[in-house]
Computed example of a mutant assay.
Amino acid sequence: MLLRIFTEPQQGASYDTLLRVAQATEECGFDAFFRSDHYLKMGDVSGLPGPSDAWITLAGLARETRRIRLGTLVTAATFRSPGPLAIAVANVDQMSGGRVELGLGTGWFEEEHTAYGIPFPSLRERFDRLEEQLQIVTGLWEKPIGKAFSFDGEYYQVADSPALPKPAQQPRPPVIIGGVGAKRTPRLAARYADEYNVPFNGLPETEAAYERVRAACEQGGRACQSMTFSAAQVVCCGRDEAEIARRAAAIGRKVDELRLNGLAGTPAEVVEKIGRFREIGAERMYLQVLDLDDLDHLELIASEVLPQM
């Protein structure tokens, strides 16, 4: 089981804050640093100093880290056209020496779209656009150098693209698709994804979602073993009840609720629950860290939880 740190910068984080967390992630021995791709805060927080662009910040972190994987969980297909997205991610992959992963989804938070003038079509159209983006982005990356790429879809048309630049990873960076949709999500994951992620769901819901993707892989003639399964859970770990309660209060949550809906408790409790996700097939766990000033939290998890993985 690989442990990855997952942050939500739209809740209030400067680039310098993200840099400190990413470097601590690397120093502590975690596998990866991921961030959400959102443009508006959620809930009762100030959101100061304001949103940051996911791929611009990851480009900076690519030059300030050496080992950890870097990526989004997940980029909204509504935010960027597929051609510029393919260029940006390939650039960051080159800048990192081949450590980038692209999580791509439909987009869901309507308020951030209206706040920044981004069109927000129906769910059906967002899924249609996502599928076309997956075809274009992966097609641009995988097209051999010297060959042109073209695509004629309902929403996007690409004509005689040189399909450059190429990412450092060949044939392309890993693609992550997540969510618990029962129909289109499993099919898209089986066709395009290297990793399937279930965020913030309980064990029964997560296991059922994994089974749907496994079934879609089999129906599409793909070996299930070629898919990596992962989950994301908020983490709140403490050496004793007082420390657990302090960390829960700092993110505006209740300990009992976090124990039910996340990875909360002592290191032994966190290890035990991660183990239950491993039993249903999870190979990677994204630990959502909401208090980005509490680097001692990362150090505790690294010293007491990570060695047991």
Rank of each mutant, 00 (worst) to 15 (best):
V234L: 13
A168Q: 05
D194F: 02
Y286H: 14
D240H: 01
E27H: 10
R284M: 11
F200H: 13
R67P: 04
D31Q: 11
A232T: 12
T75Q: 11
V234I: 15
P84S: 05
R187A: 07
D296V: 01
D256M: 06
Q135E: 15
C224V: 15
R67M: 03
L292E: 06
Q94A: 11
I56A: 15
Q308P: 00
C224M: 09
I87C: 09
D296K: 09
A62L: 11
F30Y: 13
K254W: 12
P186N: 01
F33H: 00
L188K: 01
R239I: 09
A168E: 12
V271R: 14
R63D: 02
S81Q: 14
A24W: 11
I176D: 00
C224H: 08
I56G: 08
V235W: 05
I177P: 01
L85W: 07
L102I: 03
P174M: 06
K147T: 12
G139K: 08
Y39G: 10
E241L: 13
V271E: 06
E125F: 00
I136K: 00
R284D: 14
K254A: 15
G252V: 06
G103C: 08
P204C: 00
P173C: 04
D93Q: 08
K254C: 09
Q170Y: 03
C224P: 09
G281M: 02
L19S: 14
A163I: 04
I177D: 01
D296C: 01
R259T: 04
E205R: 13
Q94G: 14
S81E: 14
L164R: 10
E26V: 05
